[in-house]
Design a protein around this nucleic acid. Structure first.
Lengths: 342, 342
DNA sequence: TTGTATGCGTTATCAG
DNA sequence: CTGATAACGCATACAA
């Protein structure tokens, strides 16, 4: 806060002012305010009262000069302009805010040079810890070496297994998706995947196949249907699938966007969803999923929880709890009409 | 940075260490590093060299203790979980980053209590200025009163005309949209609008009508087509429009989502786009617009530029340039196939 | 229980 | 040009 004149700096009220008004010494005022035990209750009350009437706010810089903690953490994002980092950011902000930590935001625009620069800046500002948020779930280079504070990697795990990373469980996502379709009585499932360079695409495929395996089934059209994360790709694949004449009763799509394309094309091909074909996607992007025709079943990656968990881990690490592991965030199926009546 | 042992605090290298190594006094070292003129070039070189070998980084808190500036600004968002604030955030981050200012991020979750709390926190951290980012373009309550630092409002302008606000020019957006359609030879234009409680919806309508007026035209179906920002609403309106039998050759949609719904329904009604009907939306949301069938013409609100401009204004204000006005950010039409061949 | 004195790392003001 | 030295606001060891 500021003084009555609404200014910082010279004009603002300091501990000395509070002490003066309370009629005690600087040291006593400090102890009273910081809840130290060696001060009479009565005195403490006086000080607190004085602090309140002056609307005293301790200068964080003077404080940080002695303390080891600064109460701020650095958030280093690779690409803010990405709808996946937003929920992570949100979750982290939520968790930190609850613990009265502030977050310093830096975005690297997916550029290593900028990342180095921002890293320097954050460390210069003496952040207590670092949260590194990736652009994809592909493992990314570690920055932990030589960094004097704890680092937690979210979304994109670190390549170094000695680091602490949190990433959504894409294998489990693939598995759950298939299990959901199986539970709806589907047996001939095709998978229209996204870009092969994304480990999310690969991992979901692995999960899906293993779930199918256990049921003695395999993917209609084969496991190699990689392409783009776009509606266009979804449409093209459905058309190709129909053209082959191979029967199928479900399409698992690598993303909600792909699923939207698939839905459109199925309609044009005269296939009813979910009667003839069940369709589901990944990400549970509400804007796309809820207004699809019919509303789209999707796997929610629980990104906000992931961000929250990462923040909590970081706080723990700052408090000295050394951890190094790769943690997988829980995911869940959100059923809607596209895979059958509820 | 940290010392060779990679720690902060007691272990880290200070200006004293640098001075010692360089064989000069503390004061001289300080001047040399801060580029003060009263120091021999030779001496300066020595100091700089020493600083480099020790990888000295000035302690920002000690610095801030004397200075009035802290080099950080507070960003107070109303709702991070909103795709419109992201570009604004990005632009601001970009502008601040270029000027070596850091941004402290706080999200109020659209809750006044939380906002007050975060405001307090930010001020306690002695931010040099505040950027308040709204959730919609509806004017929002001012927080400027009693705040000891400059405040700039982005996206949602302040209700107080004495504040400095930046908001996208929605009227101009409506006008440009209509002018674009007119330039494509369309004369019978309908407007499917979003929620009436959004001033964005109202302002765009005003702009559209005035442009039509000047051409001696008026909206097909009347100006009252308010509803939701959803595909569903777009579909419903198109159906209703077709049912009335009233002829139309263009549909201006309040958002890209609405436009997507409109496109879908037009196809089902056997209307070809853009041959029979031109369609355009607002926001230029790439994911929706580029993959639409056909790709959707849309008005880009230039949110990232808006954020950048706001950041620059804030820096100016921090430097003492008092300003108080409501600035409108430029918007632009991004033509795609849905309004005609290019 | 309270007060005094000192240090945290830097910048700024003076002398030299 | 350079170097002591006093702030800056707070916490804390130590003395009373």
């Amino acid at each position: 806060m500021a003084d009555s004149k609404g200014r910082y700096g010279k004009g603002s009220v300091t501990l000395v002012d509070v002490a003066e008004l309370a009629g005690v010494s600087l040291a006593t005022a400090s102890k009273a305010i910081n809840g130290k035990s060696q001060v009479r209750a009565e005195t403490r009350a006086k000080v607190l009262e004085a602090a309140r009437t002056l609307s005293f706010t301790p200068n964080p810089f003077a404080k940080a000069l002695n303390a080891t903690r600064t109460g701020t953490i650095g958030m280093l994002t690779s690409d803010l302009d990405n709808r996946f980092v937003l929920p992570v950011l949100l979750g982290a902000e939520d968790a930190f805010g609850a613990g009265s930590m502030s977050i310093l935001l830096c975005d690297a625009r997916d550029d290593a040079i900028r990342e180095q620069h921002h890293l320097k800046t954050l460390l210069a500002k003496r952040v207590d810890g670092l949260l590194v948020v990736g652009r994809t779930t592909n493992p990314r280079p570690s920055i932990t070496d030589g960094i004097p504070v704890p680092v937690v990697y979210v979304y994109a795990p670190s390549e170094d297994p000695n680091d602490l990373s949190l990433t959504p469980d894409n294998r489990q996502a693939g598995r759950l998706a298939v299990e959901h379709l199986l539970s709806r009585g589907r047996r001939r499932i095709a998978l229209i995947n996204g870009e092969p360079s994304y480990s999310a695409a690969q991992d979901r495929l692995v999960g899906a196949i293993s779930a199918l395996d256990e049921a003695g089934l395999s993917l209609v059209g084969g496991p190699g249907l990689f392409g783009q994360w776009s509606e266009r790709w979804g449409r093209a694949c459905v058309q190709a699938l129909v053209d082959t004449g191979e029967p199928f009763d479900a399409i698992l799509c690598g993303s909600d966007q792909i699923a939207r394309g698939a839905l459109d094309q199925l309609r044009e091909c005269g296939k009813a969803v979910p009667r003839d074909v069940a369709v589901m996607g990944f990400d549970n992007w509400d804007v796309l999923a809820e207004d699809a025709r019919p509303p789209l079943t999707s796997v929610d990656m629980n990104l906000q929880d992931l961000g929250r968990a990462a923040a909590q881990k970081l706080v723990l690490a700052i408090d000295g709890a050394q951890q190094s592991e790769l943690l997988y965030g829980k995911v869940r199926v959100v059923p809607r009409e596209s895979t059958g009546v509820l």
